[in-house]
């Protein structure tokens, strides 16, 4: 089991919390409600993440927050043995998730057997509380 599945370790004091901005706040608010929100452009149908002020594809200001299915696959991952800072309990899995809608985000894979993680595995969002935030992390959809 990954130590990253341990709620106490995931909430250890000193772990960094997101520095939300005016632009990103709706995403973090969504996480608190159990919704993975991503910007979507009604004009050109493109998804934008991390959040931006306009759609980088068509420059229209018509970005609306849309709820993602929260399902996707592991696009790439790394097992981190040397933590970013000592408060993180290593080893932990950092990954790029490719969401079903085709957009990508960085996150952690939790509750997993670190040695059996593979690119392409199906994952689903799972929220982990840290201070006043809910962080969108991911769990494997089917346990091998």
């Amino acid at each position: 089991m990954s130590t990253m599945g341990d709620e106490a370790l995931l909430n250890k004091p000193g772990l960094p919390v997101p520095k939300a901005t005016v632009i990103s706040q709706p995403h973090w608010d969504g996480c608190k409600k159990g919704q993975l929100l991503v910007q979507h452009c009604d004009e050109c149908n493109a998804y934008t993440f991390p959040p931006e002020i306009v759609c980088p594809q068509c420059l229209k200001s018509s970005l609306l927050w849309k709820q993602s299915s929260g399902k996707g696959v592991i696009y790439s991952f790394t097992v981190v043995h040397r933590p970013q800072r000592p408060e993180f309990a290593a080893p932990y899995v950092a990954a790029i998730i490719e969401l079903e809608e085709g957009w990508h985000m960085m996150s952690n894979i939790i509750d997993c057997d670190i040695d059996s993680i593979e690119i392409g595995q199906a994952v689903e969002v799972s929220y982990v509380k840290r201070e006043d935030f809910s962080l969108p992390m991911f769990k494997l959809l089917t346990v091998p």
């Binding site: 520095k19 991390p50 790439s76 981190v80 970013q84 985000m105």
Partner: peptide, 25 residues
Amino acid sequence: TRPTHEFIECFGLYTAAEFALCAQR
């Protein structure tokens, strides 16, 4: 080498881990 960005820092990423994601792919 330690990022501060809101969508990076809280997941324990840093320069080496981000380059590792490319290598692994």
